[in-house]
Design a protein around this nucleic acid. Structure first.
Lengths: 186, 186
DNA sequence: ACCTGAACACCGTTCAAGT
DNA sequence: ACCTGAACACCGTTCAAGT
């Protein structure tokens, strides 16, 4: 944020930060160029100097989120050698409150043309991660693949269900049974 | 659809049908009063004779969907006596193409104030249904509850992942392993 | 009872003009 | 290089006026 003639100059990053805030609060639809401009004290026209269009802004915001969030988390978890413990640590974050608001938006809007490619990349990284857990447990690759898919679909569904207060009352209060089911057998 | 002076009169149902079509094609956001009015050959003002506002229309559309879809499906599946077969039949519908477009919208937008109550009701009915499957299998209630939750979260997550072509390439091609995992063990 | 048409506020995008 | 302000199209909602 530079200044000139006492006026504040905005950077691309200023807009991105504002967009991520809006996504967290109200989802992708809440990213309104006019509202952000008002918040940042600039005109709508100014926005179009920094970004091609609204989709460009959302794309940049999600890219930033994915880098900070997934790319940095996976190596950290991979450091845990016991695969069951690694799975438990991952799933525990699902049960944590509050769930990352951008994460929710991402999976809910995964068919949005802007969201889709980011979501696909994050998904691939995460399923790879789960697959490693199950092969480390000694499962053959095809079984590990089925189980990784089940675990990841569970992860996504759990998030979606958690958004709805009435639905989440129905969920079990302990993770243990879920972990046990996923890691048992063979 | 009556007529008067050669002019077509629209009913609430005409608007609801148009709204369900729009939801299926582009999600809840695609329900635009002006666009529907143009499609139906009426003015926007006319819409507000039949509905309080846009949310009222979406609500009515989802109610209709839930009645047709879930309330009629559950008794039909309950007729299958073997619980494993019942689960397999249910999960098979998840793997079927194409997945119901309204179903996708419903779980993706389950935090939307209009969608939330409908989603919560549908969720309760379905988890009850799954719970019955697992108690029929001989599991104690608390274990059946954990497993019903896992199965339903899987169901939702599977749908969400299926929206994304790249993500769904990673899913296993056979349901059998998933059914086996869910139904196995004491 | 049901609909039209104009009005207002909000938003995305473009662009000539300013510094 | 970065921004403003006006313009246009699209949309939700209201309401007086029509039949």
């Amino acid at each position: 944020m530079g200044t000139r003639d006492g006026k504040i100059l905005l950077t691309r990053e200023d807009w991105i930060r504002a967009a991520l805030g809006a996504i967290g609060e109200g989802g992708v639809n809440a990213v309104a160029v006019e509202r952000l401009a008002k918040t940042l004290g600039a005109s709508r026209g100014s926005f179009y100097w920094h970004f091609r269009d609204r989709a460009d802004l959302i794309d940049a915001a999600l890219e930033l989120w994915a880098r900070k969030n997934t790319a940095e988390l996976v190596p950290e978890l991979d450091a845990i050698t016991d695969p069951v413990q690694r799975l438990r640590t991952l799933l525990r974050s699902v049960y944590e409150q509050p769930v990352d608001a951008v994460e929710l938006t991402l999976s809910a809007a995964s068919d949005d043309p802007v969201v889709a490619p980011v979501f696909a990349r994050v998904t691939r990284q995460r399923i790879d991660f789960l697959h490693r857990i199950f092969t480390d447990l000694g499962l053959p690759p095809s079984q590990a693949a089925a189980r990784a898919w089940l675990a990841y679909a569970f992860y996504i569904g759990h998030h979606q269900l958690g958004k709805n207060p009435e639905a989440s009352e129905l969920r079990p209060d302990r993770l243990d049974r879920v972990v046990e089911l996923l890691t048992r057998g063979k």
